[in-house]
């Protein structure tokens, strides 16, 4: 499988992370999204007329939606499947709010930044409320006591919220959820989401 990848993209990271956690190898094809806008080049538009990243290619199958990619990567892995649909939609709204705030703050994209942050905070409050109720039931992940593609879809834009000027300081359950994800065997980091250094000492 080939992933057309941009190292700073939260959506590309979802796919890299899912592959790493499930022990699947991806061939990474770096795309110069910034500053060269290579994702809009004629060659890339041939692959994905929508001009977005990531793009996942598995032989003749070309996927351009990250939820489709997560489903594809876990199609034979029932342990990574749960009641995911609503959360995949939620992840999309995280990308449209916190994700856009981040692109504004980091790469200078033109975004209504106050509206993006405000809607992002609203979503974080919903996420915090749900994860708090999960903890009352003794569960740490979104749909149960093990992670599914729902968690992987929602994690990157949540964890990267501070890049877009949205603090995660006041969400104890979100923080514990992120920590549980970062503790998973095979976890990989991306810039802005560092590994748990405390685990290294324990090894």
């Amino acid at each position: 499988m080939i992933l057309y990848d941009y190292v700073l993209s939260a959506s590309c990271y979802k796919i890299r992370l899912m592959a790493a956690l499930s022990g699947q190898k991806l061939e990474l094809q770096a795309v110069n999204f910034h500053p060269a806008r290579e994702h809009k080049s004629p060659e890339m538009l041939k692959l994905n007329p929508g001009g977005t990243l990531p793009i996942l290619r598995d032989e003749d199958l070309i996927m351009t939606d990250s939820s489709d990619m997560l489903r594809h990567l876990t199609r034979n892995l029932p342990e990574w499947q749960g009641d995911d649909d609503g959360w995949l939609d939620f992840a999309r709204t995280l990308n449209e709010t916190l994700g856009m705030a981040r692109l504004h703050d980091v790469l200078g994209f033109e975004v209504d930044i106050d509206a993006a942050r405000k809607r992002g905070v609203h979503l974080l409050r919903l996420l915090e409320a749900h994860l708090t109720e999960q903890r009352f039931d003794g569960m740490i992940f979104l749909t149960g006591d093990t992670p599914t593609i729902a968690d992987i879809a929602c994690f990157p834009n949540t964890a990267l919220a501070p890049d877009g000027g949205v603090s995660l300081d006041v969400y104890p359950s979100i923080r514990l959820w992120m920590r549980a994800l970062r503790s998973l065997p095979g976890f990989i980091e991306m810039p802005g989401i560092h590994r748990l250094h405390e685990l290294e000492a324990a090894e």
Partner: peptide, 9 residues
């Protein structure tokens, strides 16, 4: 909310 081995702001 602050398990053993963690730090929060």
């Amino acid at each position: 909310d602050i398990p053993v081995g963690t730090v929060v702001p």
